[in-house]
Simulated assay, not measured.
Amino acid sequence: MSEPEETFYTNDRWQNWLSRVEEEDLDPENEDSARLLLNLQDDAAIAVAKIVSAYDEGELDQEAAVEELAGVRDIVLTEVEFEDEEKRMLIDGVQTSLVCVFYAAEEYIAAGPAEEASVDEYVHAAADAEAAEDIDAALGYLVQAGTRIIDGEELDMALVEEIEYGLVSEWVNGLDSLQSALSDPEVVEEDE
């Protein structure tokens, strides 16, 4: 295996997004603010999708793919030091959504797609686990769902409307970004 020419994600890229968030007058109810946060999340999900695709196409071996994912995860999940607490919380929400994306990609690379249930069944199991306050199990089910999404199964976002707001809904939101990234891995322009 040759070293891939491509850098999947950089700290500078993440910092550019954070700078935009810091400069913007953010209102989560405002469509432009919501889009900025979604673009930031989608951009990281696209990097994950590209790593998984490079792995699937044999451009990266298992070890290299896991290393690349860890590199992106370390950049994206580092605690943000904004003075504005509300913006810090908004970024924290994006990071929370992406946690499941990273785990799902790692699980997919390590073990392939889960085969015990469908995406919908895993999402329902995760919601039930969250209701029972078993957060680890909830995350585990969504990681399995994520491996199936990477394998091409559709996540029906209508499911989210049935789920109470919480970690599961945030993680499913991240999986939706991953699904979008896998179907259209175009780079999100930072200067829209």
Rank of each mutant, 00 (worst) to 15 (best):
V119I: 02
V119T: 04
G93M: 03
S180Y: 07
E106Y: 10
V172P: 08
A34D: 13
E106Q: 15
A158I: 02
E161Y: 11
V119W: 06
S2F: 09
W17A: 01
A34M: 08
L167K: 04
L77D: 02
V48Y: 01
E68P: 02
L182Q: 12
A111S: 13
D156K: 08
E24M: 10
P4N: 07
E153Y: 10
R20Y: 01
E57V: 12
V21D: 05
R35V: 11
E161T: 00
I91H: 09
S33M: 04
E162G: 10
E81V: 12
E29H: 06
I46Y: 00
E161H: 13
D120E: 15
V119A: 02
E115Q: 15
D74W: 02
V187E: 14
Y141W: 05
E190H: 15
K50F: 00
Y165P: 15
A114I: 11
V143L: 07
L18G: 06
A65V: 09
E5P: 05
R148C: 01
D176Q: 13
D32N: 14
E190D: 14
T10Y: 06
L37I: 00
N16R: 06
N16K: 03
R148F: 08
K50A: 01
G174P: 09
N30F: 12
M89H: 12
D43Y: 10
Y9N: 07
Q144H: 13
E130M: 05
F102L: 04
D120N: 12
L37N: 04
S2Y: 14
A104M: 04
A158W: 07
A110T: 00
E83I: 03
N11E: 15
L77C: 08
F82E: 04
G93F: 01
A111M: 10
L37T: 07
L142M: 06
T96Y: 10
S19H: 12
D61S: 08
A47N: 05
D191Y: 13
E189G: 12
Y55S: 08
E189R: 11
N30L: 10
R88A: 11
L26N: 04
K87M: 03
L38P: 00
E31N: 05
E121N: 08
D136M: 00
P28H: 09
E153T: 04
D184V: 03
G93T: 07
P4H: 07
T10S: 13
D151Q: 01
E170H: 11
S180C: 06
A127S: 05
S177C: 11
C100I: 09
E189D: 13
T147C: 05
G166D: 15
M157Q: 15
S97D: 01
L159Y: 03
E161G: 15
A64V: 06
E153A: 04
E83Q: 11
P113K: 05
L155D: 10
I75L: 02
R35A: 11
F82A: 04
Q144K: 12
A54N: 01
